[in-house]
Design a binder for these strands. Structure first.
Lengths: 218, 218
DNA sequence: ATATTTTTTTAGACTATTCTAAAATCTTAT
DNA sequence: ATAAGATTTTAGAATAGTCTAAAAAAATAT
């Protein structure tokens, strides 16, 4: 069984390597995990021995099939717990990450399948990210920047490019959050701002700057 | 902040010392935690330095006020999670302990108060044990062995003396579980067996041997 | 009261994870 | 092509928690 630390490294490698399974750098990992590169090297040797990663000295790492499977299980747990925290315990979608970071390390398959069922088998977490199924399959949902969509577009908010507290607070004030329904009514040519309809009832105007930082999907 | 290990030691000392805050032995702790006495000694020195326990070499330990407060918080978390697992995720009351052992170490006061609220501020866990309130106060509920109660008694099952799988499985077959309402209709003089009414609708007879191992409260 | 047994502690060592400092390797700019 | 700079690895050490073996203290039995 993996330790919390090993799980965190695997998860970080997954996030850094992206869908394309690109090579991940030692420094990159150390930055995310706030450890020194030397510590990362030690762990990489260990994970390589346990065959969770492909690792060649000085050349970066990728996850093996086994490692990727493990990463997806951890992400599945993390995102299911986030849904629990937001849907059931009324947390704001923006304050659940740290708690889910702890909960994702609870070991019990039965717990996770029961939780999944209890939550109604959600496909996306409160940030709009897909929740891997028990086999590690994820529903890929193409996402676009709102600013690139045409008048008449109709879809849902699935995330933000910019994640500074200032931006998130502003969005919150506008009632824009992941999962919110959004459609484009008009584009103001003068400054690129958009007139939108939110949740099918609130009409408002958002600046091009805001639209440039909002991911949507249809 | 305490580590998982430190929390486990504090919790164990609390459980071993009981309400009366009796002195706890090094060997006793090592047995519960399945570590060697030498390891316990090391940890006791550490917890003593952090003033969670009163510790004099060769004389056993008790919790300080600070230690007891900490223990009660951990127990509060453990028992609230047990309620969650049974009430919401449909676990059997007898299979939740190990998972709760992990969940009790999640650090977030907000999480626990939200969970408490979500569960309807329960006073007892699925085993019938009291859940400390946020200040660490516990509702003490006097418990008796069912065999000692008179005909006409009316109350609830709050625990078992014997906890072997065989006994628990048998109780399960009879639908006797903590929280179940129970009243005594008649006592058979010949063998001490009891005719009882369970959950106000099921009438059955249980042996003296069974009644001797059932805790009840009114 | 003292010898024996049990309990507890000390001393020294191991594993996991981290660190610092220095060496090795790779990349980039000329 | 090579020097300078950046990245990565190695070497050696620290901390938390555990262990074994042996010493010290307490409890017990005659």
């Amino acid at each position: 069984m993996l330790t919390h630390t090993e799980e965190n490294y695997i998860k970080t490698i997954y996030h850094l390597s992206g869908d394309a399974n690109r090579d991940v750098s030692t420094n990159g990992i150390s930055e995310v995990l706030k450890t020194k590169p030397a510590s990362v090297t030690d762990m990489l040797r260990k994970l390589s021995e346990k065959s969770y990663i492909h690792y060649i000295k000085y050349q970066g790492v990728t996850l093996t099939k086994k490692g990727k499977k493990e990463a997806l299980q951890i992400i599945r747990k993390h995102r299911l717990w986030e849904v629990f925290l937001v849907d059931k315990l009324k947390f704001h979608w923006d304050e659940v990450h740290e708690i889910a970071e702890q909960l994702e390390h609870i070991h019990s398959n039965l717990l996770i399948s029961r939780l999944d069922e209890f939550l109604g088998n959600p496909a996306f977490d409160p940030h709009g990210d897909p929740i891997p199924d028990p086999q590690g399959e994820i529903t890929i949902r193409k996402k676009y920047l709102l600013c690139d969509m045409a008048v008449g577009f109709n879809g849902v908010v699935v995330g933000m490019l910019e994640t500074s507290p200032a931006f998130l607070q502003y969005l919150d004030r506008l009632n824009i959050c992941p999962g919110a329904k959004i459609s484009i009514k008009e584009r103001i040519v003068f400054d690129g701002s958009l007139e939108i309809l939110l949740q099918e009832d609130k009409q408002l105007v958002i600046s091009y700057e805001v639209a440039k930082n909002l991911y949507v999907s249809d």
